[in-house]
C-alpha cells in the first residue's frame, strides 16, 4: 500500500518489482507530459487533502478487487514534455483484477484527487479544463457498484 505525492521523479521498474512478491499479475500505468504546443506543465495540489483522497481511492479499489498491493505516485511542480507525471500500479493473483483495478485507480484519481494542471504554450499559460469524458469514465465504476 503506497500513496506518494512528490516533486522528484520515480523509478517505475522498481515500483513495479516491489509489488511482485505474492502477486500473479502486476499492471502499471504511467502518465507522461505530452509535447506538441505545450512547452511545460505545472501541477498544483491541495496538501493534506490530496494524500487523503488518494488513500481513499486506493482503499476503495481494495474493497472491489482482491489486491496483493497497489501504488499511486503523483508528481507536483513544473514538468517538461517527456517527463513522467504519475503512475498507478495494481497487483493481484490474476490479470483481470489487476487491469481493472489499475484503470479504476486512474479514473478516480483524475476526477477525485485535488490536482490541477497549468500548461505553458507559445500563446501563453492556461489551466487545463476538466473533461466530461474523464467524469463519465469515473461514473461507470459507480454503476458497477
Amino acid at each position: 500500500m503506497a500513496v506518494r505525492v512528490q516533486r522528484e521523479d520515480f523509478d517505475l521498474g522498481a515500483e513495479a518489482a516491489a509489488l511482485e512478491a505474492g502477486a500473479g499479475a502486476v499492471v502499471t500505468f504511467t502518465g507522461i507530459v505530452r509535447g506538441g504546443d505545450v512547452s511545460a506543465m505545472t501541477l498544483e495540489h491541495y496538501p493534506g487533502m490530496t494524500e487523503a483522497a488518494l488513500a481513499e481511492i486506493e482503499a476503495e479499489a481494495r474493497t472491489r478487487w482482491q489486491l496483493s498491493g497497489a501504488t499511486i505516485i503523483h508528481r507536483v511542480g513544473r514538468l517538461l514534455p517527456g517527463e513522467r507525471i504519475m503512475m498507478v500500479a495494481a497487483a493481484s493473483a490474476h490479470r483481470q483484477a489487476a487491469f481493472e483495478a489499475a484503470e479504476f485507480l486512474m479514473d478516480y484519481l483524475k476526477t477525485r484527487a485535488p490536482f490541477w494542471k497549468k500548461e505553458e504554450t507559445g500563446a501563453g499559460a492556461r489551466w487545463v479544463d476538466a473533461r466530461e469524458t474523464d467524469e463519465s469514465a469515473a461514473r461507470r465504476w459507480a454503476a458497477k457498484g
Partner: peptide
C-alpha cells in the same frame, strides 16, 4: 474551506 476548479490530475 477550500475553493478550486474541477480536478485535472493524472
Amino acid at each position: 474551506v477550500a475553493f478550486f476548479p474541477p480536478m485535472t490530475g493524472g
